[in-house]
Structure formats: structure tokens, C-alpha cells
Design a protein around this nucleic acid. Structure first.
Lengths: 195, 195
DNA sequence: TGAATGACAGATGTTGAAATCTGTCATCTG
DNA sequence: CAGATGACAGATTTCAACATCTGTCATTCA
């Protein structure tokens, strides 16, 4: 039985994701998580100091999955930087848009979680702008992009496309104009980037 | 006495702004507004069909004040389009940042109101992108900007700078990196716009 | 006669007591 | 003795009775 397996942080995180999926962020309690695992809630506190720490760990896992999917595009240095940048921005947008569209309740749950944890989100954003920085550096090295501070330019690119990855705009992603708007922003930004 | 003056929509709007300022959006009631004016709440309903309509009218007034301030920059065709575009974006950002910084509670009140009324906000955004369109058209005519669809380009410019005028980002406007981030975004966008 | 009133029904918000949850820790168990 | 337990105090949430608000309208007032 599952209940006889060792209680690990990993198992607790999985149970927590399930409880969050079932009950939503407002009603998911540590007691619920313990009940789902067949242990006392005191045992959960052996692995996570607070409920907030548990939620942060779940959020971090979720955010890291997004980062990993995009890291592949950054790493593929065989393709030209402009192509990679376009793909990276499109992939980020599509990933978010699908999550928001496929399971709106779960997405709303994670929006609440990310809203709680400036820490984990800030790290995630640093991670993403770091990925952008690498693509832009490659582009500068290849002579196709112009930038005297790739990290600052990466931040700017990330900011300009905020409407297409910041979850607060998720309701607008269903608007039929959105694809044209996204294309217009990416074209404008890439024009600004070219050497 | 004020109580003997004719009850006009204008007077009701002024009283409503005051009640919102005093009580905040959650506790500002039609009864409060009527009390402030020394009339029965039934009289308020003679001028505004619903509480939502009253709030929308207040919101519209507030948004229109922002539009008017920026219209002056659009109208000054003696200055070159790039300069006007930079000034327009900076003026929009500064206006919002000051409102958010000077009276955070009132600003929060209006954020709640705008969140309620997609209608009035959508019109305001159309108004602002219309102003941007005119500047861009002037730039295209003068040969300094390149765009085959100034209205679409205006939307793109507006979207790229969302982080610096969308009130949801207001807390971040206090971050010391914000001015550099704003400058980086505007520079990137203007590079993309140049012919 | 046209604007203002206030009583009213149904919707929404407030309040405070009871239930549940968070986080700790002395105790238990394999 | 490492890990799990459950009782506990204080914090937070729930729930139902009560109060207030919204929107209508027959009546009053000037």
C-alpha cells in the first residue's frame, strides 16, 4: 500500500498538487494533504516548516517545468538567433495559453499561488530573462542583433511581451485579435533588435 | 445652502467621488451618496439607473481626465513625431505613477472601479491607441517611422509599454530598476519603429 | 405635473459564536 | 532513536441570524 511507503517530500508535493487541484487554493489545507497521504498533519510539518513553504515548493516545481520546456530552444545553437527568439516567445505564450484554456480552475489556482510568493516568481523571472539573455548574446555575436547590454535588452524584450505571458492577461488571450496583436508586438520588437 | 440647489448628475458625480474617496469602493453605497447630498436615495436613482451606472460615470470622468492631458501632446504637430511619442509614453507613465504614489488608497479605489467596467475601460484604451495612431501616422508621413498599418502598430506600441501604464503593475513602479526598464523598453520600441 | 420621497421585497453585507486549521511539542512506536 | 502521532493554543474560517443596501413604485409635495 501507498500508506506503507516512506513519506518523502516528493510524495507530499504530489499529494499537495492533487489537493490543490481538487479543492482549489482557498480550501486546500495541510490537514487535507495529510489525510490524502494517510498520515497525521504533524508528519507533513516534518518535511515543510510551514504551509507557505509547502505551497512555495509546489509553485516552484510548476514554474520549473515551464523553464525546462523553454531551455531546449535556448540550447539549440544550430538555429539562427532570430528564429530561436521568435520560437521562444511563441512557445512561452502557447504554453501559458494552453494551460489557461485547458484547465482554467487549475490555472487560476496557480495564479493565486504565484501571487503569494514573490520569492519563487522573481527567481523564475530571472531564469527566463537569463534564457533570453543567452539568445540575445548569441545574436549579437552572430551580428544579427544589436545590443550593448544583452541582459538589459533581455529584460526589455520580456517586458514588452508581458501581455502574452503574464497570467493576469489570461482572459484576453481568448480575444480573436490576440494572435495578430502578438505577431505585431514580436515583429516590432525584432525590428528594434536587429543590427 | 447646497441642499437647496437643483440636483444634477454633475452634483451627484462629485458627491460620489467624495464618498468613494472617504469610504473606499467596497463601502461606498448609494445611500451614502444620497446622505452626502441631503436627499433620499430614490432621487439618485432618477439620474442613474443603477449603482453600476453611477460608478461607471465616475470612472469615465476619471479616465477622460487622463486622455485630455495626453491629447495636448498629440495635437502639438510642431514637434517631431519621435519626440512626441517619447513624451506621450513618459507622460502616461508619470501620470499613473504619480496617482499611484500620491494617494494609494484612491488609486486602489479606481483600480477596483476600472476592474468592474470593461466597457468604459475599453473605450478609454481605444481612445489612447487612437492618440498613438495619430502620432505614428504623422511619423510615417514625415518619413521617420515605418508602418504599413499605423493603427495596428499603435496597438503594438501600447501593448509593449503595458507594464508602465497598466495599474496592476503599480507596486513595481517603486522598484529602483523601473526607470531604467522604462527607458530600455522605449528605446527598443522606437528602434523598431524607425524607417 | 414633474421632481422628490420613503416603504418595501429581495439581494448583499455584517457579526459573533462555533468549527476548523496551523504550527508546536511531549509522547509513543518499531 | 528517528520518525510518527495527536493533543493543544492561538489564528483563521464557516455559518446563520441580523442589518443594511439596491432598485421599484405608489404617494406626496411644490
Amino acid at each position: 500500500m501507498a500508506a506503507t511507503e516512506t513519506l518523502t517530500a516528493e510524495r507530499i508535493l504530489e499529494a499537495t498538487e492533487e489537493v490543490l487541484r481538487r479543492h482549489g487554493p482557498a480550501k486546500a489545507t495541510v490537514v487535507d494533504v495529510a489525510r490524502a497521504l494517510g498520515v497525521s498533519h504533524g508528519s507533513v510539518y516534518r518535511h515543510f516548516r510551514t504551509k507557505a513553504a509547502l505551497r512555495e515548493a509546489v509553485t516552484k516545481r510548476w514554474l520549473d517545468r515551464t523553464s525546462e520546456a523553454l531551455a531546449g530552444i535556448v540550447a539549440d545553437t544550430s538555429r539562427d538567433p532570430e528564429r530561436r527568439l521568435r520560437d521562444w516567445l511563441a512557445a512561452l505564450f502557447e504554453a501559458k495559453r494552453h494551460k489557461a484554456g485547458d484547465d482554467p480552475e487549475l490555472f487560476a489556482t496557480y495564479v493565486v499561488l504565484t501571487g503569494e510568493q514573490g520569492r519563487a516568481v522573481a527567481e523564475h523571472l530571472d531564469d527566463l530573462t537569463g534564457q533570453l539573455t543567452r539568445i540575445i548574446e548569441d545574436g549579437v555575436a552572430a551580428g544579427v542583433f544589436s545590443s550593448d547590454d544583452p541582459a538589459a535588452t533581455a529584460r526589455a524584450v520580456f517586458h514588452t511581451t508581458g501581455r502574452f505571458h503574464d497570467p493576469q492577461y489570461a482572459p484576453e488571450w481568448k480575444d480573436p485579435r490576440t494572435d495578430a496583436d502578438f505577431a505585431a508586438v514580436v515583429d516590432l520588437v525584432l525590428r528594434g533588435l536587429r543590427a
